[in-house]
Simulated assay, not measured.
Amino acid sequence: MNKAVLIIVFNRPDKFRKVLEPLKIVKPPRLYIAADGPRKNNKNDKIKCKETRDIVKEIDWECDIKTLFRDNNIGCEKSISSSVSWFFENEEDGIILEDDIVGDITFFSYCEKLLDYYKNDERVMHIGNNNVHDNNSLDSYYFCSIGNPWGWASWKRAWKYFDLGLSKYSYDEIKNSINNIFDDEIFRRFWIDCGFYMKTNTEKAVWDMSWIICMMINNGLSVYPNQNLITNIGFDDSATHCISSDNRYSNLQTQQLKELKYLNEVGRNKYMDSKIMVEFYGQKPLNIKEILNDLDRLNFIINETINKIVWLIPIKSIRNNVRNHIKNKLKSIKPNNYPVDL
């Protein structure tokens, strides 16, 4: 392969070795290794961080190795995003892996070919992977507005739009861009809330969510293959975010991309955007029909309950007065199209 690869590591030497296994086969000519410093007063970090960094000495294929080893810990989000910035200060494009992302061999050729094919297409900003989102398509890949950060590739021309705290973008830019992309109000609210949170709480900004929002603001698209090309081996207690080994995305089986057929058109796949929102982010779309059905069921329950209570009143005139009083009260708080039928 001809593209450079960035690997972002920390304190997991065993996982770093596994990430390197397919790279020993594809042999990238330039390898960038970035590592955050050990956390303060953490003796285990000092040991494990050193072990992880020493693995660089085991790389035995001919390649140019550059390292960014920090003395002090700056935290996961700043460490990853600043490492990517460092990478693109030296490269026009390339592939980015974290220390728990193991790619199938075909993942690297997939990234390399698409990096060249969409090199000058400003609409395409991110090349990601699948994580088993079934597209029911014979195409090699599709486009979405959401970029998966578990094994990805990009260009310097795209990363220039990144801003961890979204300080270069206004609240209106965030809101309007997201509203233009998603039709569903639940999806809109999810990303608008994320964007507003990042902008308001800069120190707590999550790098990959900020990156996705930056792409949305700049009308960027992400490429997804129709097969899963990476596996995440990091779901355990050593992880920063994904600690549950029972997670459905833990240690997924990879597939080989047999053939890469380029699409004739660049366009967002709305169906797959929705599918990713549901499956990956757990956001259920707003279903008006379900809401109306729920209101019908609630209306029926209220009527039945009140009728049973009212009929316990033995005197008819009092019973009718009570029924009318309750009916008028409920009508005043319910929508006109959901009258209480007493």
Rank of each mutant, 00 (worst) to 15 (best):
N336M: 12
P335N: 11
R123W: 06
I178N: 02
W211I: 08
E91K: 03
L20S: 00
S210C: 13
N42Y: 05
P22Q: 06
R12T: 13
N293S: 10
S154M: 07
S145R: 14
I326R: 02
G147R: 00
L20A: 01
K48P: 01
T52K: 03
K316R: 09
N42M: 06
F300W: 11
E112T: 12
D64I: 11
I8F: 09
N218C: 10
I233P: 03
N307A: 07
A35D: 00
Q253N: 14
E77H: 15
L164S: 03
R30N: 11
R17W: 09
N176C: 10
N303H: 08
N336W: 12
A34W: 00
R297M: 07
D116W: 05
R17P: 02
D100A: 05
Y171H: 14
K156M: 06
N129Q: 11
W155A: 03
D45N: 15
Y32L: 11
I313R: 00
N180A: 08
M216I: 10
G75L: 07
F143D: 00
I192R: 04
C194E: 14
R17L: 14
D60R: 13
K119A: 14
G75M: 05
F16S: 01
I33N: 00
P28F: 00
V26A: 02
E185A: 12
S274I: 05
T52S: 13
V266M: 09
I80L: 06
Y117C: 06
T254P: 03
I233S: 00
V26W: 03
K18S: 03
S154K: 04
W159M: 10
L298M: 13
C144G: 02
L342W: 02
S81V: 10
R268K: 14
V310E: 02
C76M: 13
N299Q: 12
D139C: 07
P285Y: 05
D236Q: 06
M216Y: 07
L342N: 02
F187E: 03
L115S: 02
M198R: 03
W191T: 03
K66T: 11
V132G: 06
Q256E: 09
I96R: 00
K24L: 12
E185D: 15
N336C: 13
R123D: 11
R189H: 10
V132P: 01
T106D: 04
N251F: 07
L20F: 04
N232M: 04
I181E: 12
F300G: 01
A153T: 01
K275S: 13
Y117D: 12
I230N: 00
F10M: 08
K40A: 08
E259M: 12
V132Y: 15
T240R: 08
N90M: 12
Y281K: 09
C242H: 13
R189I: 08
Y110C: 02
I213Q: 02
I47V: 14
P149A: 08
T67D: 04
D341V: 15
K199R: 14
G195L: 14
P22R: 01
K119D: 15
W207M: 08
N176W: 11
L138I: 13
F143C: 05
F16M: 06
T240A: 09
